[in-house]
Design a protein around this nucleic acid. Structure first.
Lengths: 152, 152
DNA sequence: TTTGTTGCAAAACGTTTGCAGCCTC
DNA sequence: GAGGCTGCAAACGTTTTGCAACAAA
């Protein structure tokens, strides 16, 4: 069990952020954080809103508001890949990874590449201070490659 | 003058695509392509629509429709960075570059790094066939870094 | 002639906002 | 007690869609 990924530690990060910025520590905000913590994979505001209806009733507006706060304290990152919902991903307990996006079916796969990560993260800039990055590779997944080949 | 970036060659790529997919070669589509060709930098549907009103009247719906076609034949790529308009960028006559995005003011800078580009492009995948990629680095630009430091 | 494409306007959609009441601080 | 936060619903702004007229094939 990795101590640094436990909900208690994450909660503390969030609490510190809220205190520092004079935001209130409302039960809704912690409930949202908790649900994100126990949800696997990418999610969007609507998914989060829906799974929460089962055991903790919050409004969609509060979900959006809280996601914004979590983005600011870097507990989650945001992806805007399609014209659809923005996608979110928790950064806690999640190795930095890259994304493969099929331009035909829209499926997203993740891959890790330590060497590539180091290459990107070690890049220095003159007047820019990076905090995180996203690498999206677009192309065809195996299934679509075959499917499109048969159409020729 | 690079032959491969001339409008004639680009037009041919588009024409081939339209023929192959049994789409019609309408004057609107070529007018849009031409305007993109002569426009520098990132643009969005609204910018394109507005600059076109001066000399070629098209509807916004047709602009969106044509951008979709140009995406499919990879003459442009799409970025969805903010909650605002989706941004487009022509791929012709444009070196592959990477993006620096300030998480405070939203400003986007571009940078090129041949070594990084090679590292990314030479990556092979088991069941994925990449066509292009986008690298977004998030962080603080010089101005915002100073601005935020003074708030502490 | 057939049918894909256009322009227009309305609809759709995710997200944001306004506001009255609530609850942290 | 003050004022930030919530839920609700309405508003927003970008993109998509429906449809009649048009024009490329």
């Amino acid at each position: 069990m990795k101590e640094e990924n436990s909900y208690e530690v994450i909660k503390e990060v969030f609490t510190d952020y809220l205190k520092k910025h004079h935001h209130r520590k409302t039960p809704e905000r912690y409930a949202i954080l908790e649900h994100i913590h126990s949800y696997d994979g990418h999610f969007n505001a609507d998914i989060l809103f829906n799974i929460m209806q089962n055991d903790y009733r919050v409004s969609l507006a509060t979900v959006y508001n809280t996601l914004e706060l979590l983005l600011e304290c870097k507990l989650i990152i945001k992806h805007q890949l399609g014209g659809q919902f923005a996608q979110y991903e928790k950064t806690f307990g999640n190795n930095t990874h890259h994304h493969l996006i099929c331009t035909n079916c829209g499926k997203i796969k993740e891959f890790s590449d330590k060497q590539l990560r180091i290459s990107i993260q070690s890049r220095k800039f003159a007047h820019f201070y990076p905090s995180h990055y996203s690498l999206y590779m677009y192309g065809l997944c195996g299934k679509c490659k075959i499917e499109l080949k048969s159409l020729l």
